[in-house]
Amino acid sequence: MDEIVRSWTSELLDSGNLLALAVGVVALALVASHGTWGLLRNVVTIAHEGGHAVIALLSGRTLNGIRLHSDTSGLTVSTGKPTGPGMVFTLFAGYPAVSLLGLGGAWLVSSDGARLMLWISVGLLAVMLLAIRNAYGVLSVVLTGGVVFAVSWFATPAWQALCCLLFSWFLLFGGIRPVAELRRKRAGGRAPNSDADQLARLTGVPPAMWLGLWMLIGLGALLAGGRWLLLIPQV
């Protein structure tokens, strides 16, 4: 079986290969399917809340903790000035974080850095675990980190490359769906305190503008990351 995967992986070095496209289609199906999305959205929530946490720290705020819930929602609590650029950037960072992580993963995969991508992911999850403040959140991060660690430690390079390819595609597509979901929730009056609404209250910029900007970032990351994944250069 590994020889088959090794053969497939070698095709990743061919410009415009069909394998990378096929893996992208699988990732899209995982994101589009209600059944798989309900489970895998936890990974997206981890990335989303991690984005809030990182920018909160970089902007000088105090990170009080992160909670992940079984309905795939999350909450990152930080203290500091309630207005100003630090708060704005912290609120803004969640949705783009998923797409930008996917973009970074696509770059690493295209640069033959699959193993490095796996170890970076394990490191980020380990650091995030220190900030988790509820049992379900601990379980989610530990399980996700366990899977990534198992691939990095036990899988062959061929399987590592294939898994990282799938993971990158998943984050690129998974960064877009939550923005579309939030737009539908807001249209139904079911998300009055969303990141977009909080940003609107802080800045005076309408929530629709923030949603549009997040969608543009997600689509831009998908186009750039997809190009890297589909056009991996010959080495």
Rank of each mutant, 00 (worst) to 15 (best):
T9E: 14
S10P: 01
S10C: 09
E11C: 05
L12D: 03
L12C: 03
L12A: 04
L12E: 03
L12H: 05
D14Y: 08
D14G: 09
S15K: 13
N17M: 03
L18N: 06
L21C: 00
L21G: 02
A22C: 02
A22Q: 01
V23P: 02
V25K: 01
A29Y: 07
A29C: 07
A29N: 02
A29F: 09
L30K: 02
V31E: 03
A32K: 02
A32D: 01
S33H: 07
S33L: 12
H34W: 07
G35W: 10
T36C: 05
T36R: 07
W37M: 08
W37T: 06
L39K: 11
L40Y: 04
L40F: 11
L40A: 06
N42C: 11
V44A: 15
V44H: 15
T45W: 02
T45G: 04
A47P: 00
A47Q: 04
A47F: 06
H48E: 00
H48L: 01
H48A: 01
E49N: 06
E49T: 06
G50Q: 10
G51V: 01
H52S: 12
A53H: 11
V54I: 14
I55T: 15
I55D: 08
A56C: 08
A56P: 07
L57M: 14
S59A: 15
G60N: 03
T62A: 13
T62F: 11
T62K: 15
T62D: 14
N64V: 07
G65Q: 10
G65D: 05
I66Q: 02
I66E: 03
R67G: 09
L68W: 06
L68H: 05
L68D: 04
L68V: 06
H69M: 12
S70I: 12
S70H: 10
D71Y: 06
T72H: 13
T72L: 05
S73F: 09
S73V: 08
S73T: 15
L75W: 01
S78M: 05
T79W: 13
T79R: 15
G80K: 00
P82A: 12
P82F: 11
P82H: 11
T83M: 14
T83A: 14
G84R: 00
G84E: 00
G84M: 00
P85G: 02
P85F: 07
G86S: 15
G86M: 09
V88S: 08
V88M: 12
